[in-house]
């Protein structure tokens, strides 16, 4: 693969005797969208959390832009430090802060921008995501779709180079799902970040994915373009995809 930005080799994460990740290898190209699919509880979110340093690894290496990941996280002293963002499955918004305060938080606490610059950026981001009217409302006063958009705004406000999306469309109706996927694709094009996405929305998520990785039994068993899923699918993957309605929707398209 050309221009590998995120390189994972032999990543292991165990919880007691449960080997959730048992030697994951994955190459993610720069400015691409890679979607991780797999059964519930198979370790997809664990993989994202290992990359985000929320969990310590039991083995293996993660490299970003050719550097061990420890040197690349935001907050490290190097001027070329890679910025990470994470959009959580349940949004992880602060209930006691308004939508605007939630979005401004990473800039207020971890950037050197002054207050007027921060306000400008937050207003622009909220306007892009159609949240200007709701900027002074608290998360509890927002609909599920709006909360997702606030979480997306917070994840993108720092202009990150890598964004990890943990099931960004959970609990949304099909229309909202589509609009969240559109936003991710749109912002990826606009800001050029590299996205790693965990999703169960098969096949909708394939529309914005450059690559798909199938995680099963602690390792990546398939990695390729969405169009290669049918041709290269081994029987277990076929079974998983047909249960996820992929085969049926593909068949109906044909």
């Amino acid at each position: 693969m050309d221009d590998v930005f995120l390189k994972i080799r032999g990543l292991k994460k165990h919880f007691g005797d449960n080997k959730v990740l048992d030697g994951v290898n994955l190459d993610v190209a720069r400015s691409s969208v890679t979607t991780i699919i797999g059964k519930s509880g198979i370790g997809k979110s664990v993989l994202l959390k290992c990359i985000a340093n929320l969990l310590t690894l039991d083995g293996g290496d993660i490299e970003l832009d050719g550097q061990p990941i420890e040197h690349s996280r935001r907050g490290s002293k190097g001027s070329d430090a890679v910025t990470f963002s994470y959009m959580f499955q349940n949004n992880a918004l602060f209930d006691s802060m308004t939508a605007a305060e939630n979005v401004a938080l990473p800039l207020l606490e971890a950037s050197k921008l002054n207050k007027s610059e921060i306000r400008e950026r937050v207003d622009a981001m909220l306007a892009h995501l159609g949240l200007s009217e709701s900027s002074q409302r608290y998360p509890g006063e927002l609909s599920g779709g709006m909360r997702k958009r606030v979480a997306l705004a917070r994840a993108l406000i720092t202009n990150p180079q890598v964004v990890l999306f943990d099931e960004p469309t959970t609990g949304l109706d099909p229309e909202r799902k589509f609009s969240v996927f559109e936003m991710i694709a749109d912002y990826r094009q606009r800001f050029g970040f590299t996205a790693l996405l965990v999703s169960h929305d098969i096949p909708e998520v394939f529309e914005i994915s450059d690559r798909v990785a199938w995680l099963d039994e602690g390792i990546i068993k398939f990695f390729g373009k969405p169009s290669e899923l049918d041709a290269d699918a081994e029987s277990a993957l076929s079974g998983f995809l047909s249960k996820a309605n992929y085969g049926r929707s593909q068949g109906s398209k044909k």
Partner: peptide, 18 residues
């Protein structure tokens, strides 16, 4: 439980200090 503490960490904000 709501992953707000993890969220702080991903924003490079030290959750204990904050």
């Amino acid at each position: 439980n709501d992953e707000q503490i993890d969220a702080l960490q991903t924003m490079s904000i030290d959750p204990r200090g904050y």
